[in-house]
Amino acid sequence: MRRRDFLKIAGLGFISGLFLSSVSFSFKPTRRVRWGITIDVLQCKKNRDCKVCIEACHEIHNVPDVPDPKEKVMWIWTSTFEKAFENELGPLVKETRGSDPVLLLCNHCENPPCVKVCPTGATWKREDGIVMMDYHRCIGCRYCMAACPYGSRSFNWKDNRRYIKKLNYDFPVRTKGVVEKCNLCEERISKNLLPRCVEACPYGALTFGNLNDFQSSPSRLLRERLSIVRKPHLGTLPNVFYLL
C-alpha cells in the first residue's frame, strides 16, 4: 500500500469513528429511574409544629442531636417560606405566607454542584439520581458545603456519636471530620421501602416515586398541582418539589 492511500484510509476511518461516537452519544437511552419527592406545603402549614418526619429520619440514620446550633447535623429540617425561597417570592407573598413552615432536605439535584467540586469522588450521583456520600473516602475539605446552594450538607466538627440518642445498628455512624447528608434512604429503596420521612408523615404530605414513571404519585401530583423548587435559576434541577 502506498503511503498516500494509507493516509486516506486512516483519515476516513478516523472521521467515521468520530461521527459514529457522536451519534451514539446523542442516542443515549433515557434513564429509567429518576427518584423524586414532593412536599405539600399546605399540609405542613396545617400541622405547624409537626416534627415526625425529622425525628423518624434522624433516628434510623444515627443523626446526632448536636446541642450547639453552629455545629448541628441535619438531614432534614424545617425553615420558613421566606427564608428558603428568599428570592423566589414577591413581597406580598412574603407578608401573607412568609412564615409558613417548609421542610428542607438534600434536593438530589440533577446537576449537583457538590459532586463536581469533590476532590476525591467521595460524593457522586447515582444513575437513579441519588447524590451519595462515601464517609470513608471524604477528606473533610468542605468544598461541597461551599458549593451546595441549599445548605444541605453537615460536617462533623467533632465526635458527634455521643449525641446519638438511640443507636441503630443497621446503619453506619460517622466519625469526626467528614461531611454527611440525606441519602434519600437508598438503603430502604433497595429493599422496596419508601424513604423514612415519606413513610412516617401522618398527614401524607410527602410522596416519593419515579419521576420518569407517568403513573407514580409524585408524577401525578406534579401534573395536577402547581409546584416550585428552590433556586430554580441556578440550573441545579432539584428533585424535591414543593406543592403550593
Partner: peptide, 8 residues
C-alpha cells in the same frame, strides 16, 4: 483545614 488529614 482538613477534617481527615490522614486521608490526604
Amino acid at each position: 483545614d482538613l477534617g481527615k488529614p490522614e486521608r490526604i
